[in-house]
Amino acid sequence: MSLSPLAALVRTPPFAALCYGMAIVMVFSRLYGNGAFWHAAMGEHFLRVAENVAEEGIELLGYGVLFGGCLGYYRRLRREQPV
Rank of each mutant, 00 (worst) to 15 (best):
M22I: 09
P14A: 05
L60T: 03
Q81D: 07
R30W: 11
A50G: 09
P82S: 08
E80Y: 00
M26F: 02
E56N: 15
L77T: 02
I58G: 00
A36G: 08
V53N: 15
I58H: 04
Q81C: 01
A7Q: 10
V83G: 14
Y32D: 09
N52F: 06
E51K: 15
A36H: 14
M26N: 12
N34V: 01
V53K: 09
A16R: 10
F37N: 07
N52R: 15
Y20S: 13
M1N: 13
A8Q: 05
P82H: 04
R76N: 14
A7I: 12
V53R: 14
A7Y: 06
F67D: 02
A17V: 09
R79T: 06
Y73K: 03
G64H: 08
A23L: 09
N34L: 06
F46K: 12
Y32I: 01
A17L: 11
T12E: 10
E56T: 06
G64D: 02
M42D: 13
G43I: 04
G21Q: 02
P82R: 08
A50L: 05
R11L: 12
I58A: 09
L6D: 05
G68W: 10
Y32G: 04
F15G: 02
V27P: 00
V25I: 11
P82Y: 11
L47N: 08
N52C: 03
T12S: 10
L77N: 00
A50T: 01
C70Q: 10
L71A: 14
N52M: 05
Q81I: 12
G69D: 04
R75S: 13
M26G: 10
A23W: 00
E55M: 09
R48F: 02
P5V: 07
V10C: 04
